[in-house]
């Protein structure tokens, strides 16, 4: 079936619009699109989106992470193997994290990372034929916000939800931060780490994040005040 931008598309559909644009200029194909001999074929079910001038992708509901370069992710250290840590990021295979890719780490000065620790790291290598590689420093050798996350709680959610709460137009985090203090790290692999003063406040943050998945801007704001009042004990 022939489809256009903004429509609901299914795997196997063809998009002529993209191939026409592609004849004149360069086109960037995002996730869910593939170039075949006879045009552009869709490989995922979702909505076809376009960002001017010529980037196309299919936006769909997804829970399984596919590593891609430059994304900040949250992983769990599952194994120490020689000079690398194996980190489970939720992809098809575990990612590797060298012990030298921490701030101030040398051959003699090893970072303190144990099995079962949660790390916030950046994807350095993500190719379809190789194991993904993570780093906990930026190009200047500074850790920034990356590194081992202490205490708190990690939960999984859909990839769309992470992108939604990270969107600057999403009011969730802005309205939540006025209600009570908390720390949060969102990995684009669908894992969110949260930490607040008390256990109940931590649960409330998780509740608010998961609850906002299908709500619009106004509803999110009212949900935040609702949760804050439950937390304060006004609602029994």
């Amino acid at each position: 079936m022939k489809v256009a931008v903004g429509e609901v598309v299914l795997p196997g559909d063809q998009c002529e619009e993209i191939s026409l644009v592609g004849e004149k200029s360069k086109v960037i194909l995002g996730p869910g699109l593939r170039k075949e001999v006879d045009g552009i074929t869709i490989t995922k079910a979702g909505t076809l989106k376009k960002r001017s001038p010529n980037t196309y992708w299919v936006d769909n509901y997804q829970k399984r992470y596919i590593p891609s370069r430059g994304e900040n992710v949250i992983g769990v250290v599952v194994q120490k193997a020689g000079d690398i840590f194996r980190v489970d990021v939720g992809g098809s295979c575990s990612a590797s994290l060298s012990y030298l890719s921490f701030e101030g780490a040398t051959k003699k000065n090893r970072p303190k990372v144990n099995i079962g620790d949660v790390v916030y790291a950046k994807m350095l290598v993500a190719s379809k034929d190789m194991e993904p590689e993570l780093v906990c420093v930026d190009s200047h050798g500074k850790k920034g916000r990356l590194g081992v996350l202490e205490e708190g709680f990690v939960f999984k959610c859909s990839l769309n939800l992470v992108r939604k709460i990270l969107n600057p137009e999403c009011p969730l985090l802005n309205s939540l931060k006025n209600e009570w203090p908390f720390e949060l790290a969102a990995g684009l692999n669908g894992r969110i780490w949260i930490k607040a003063k008390t256990m109940r406040e931590t649960i409330a943050v998780g509740n608010a994040i998961l609850g906002c998945e299908y709500l619009n801007t106004d509803e999110i704001k009212s949900m935040c005040t609702n949760i804050a009042s439950i937390l304060a004990g006004h609602v029994s």
Binding site: N207, L210, G211, E219, N226
Partner: peptide, 24 residues
């Protein structure tokens, strides 16, 4: 249609998904 899950994995005791809807 709604895709809404009534049960969240992480939830406060007295939180109700419908509360937000009805307020709106």
């Amino acid at each position: 249609l709604a895709l809404t899950r009534k049960d969240l994995n992480i939830k406060l005791k007295s939180y109700n998904v419908d509360d937000n809807r009805s307020e709106i």
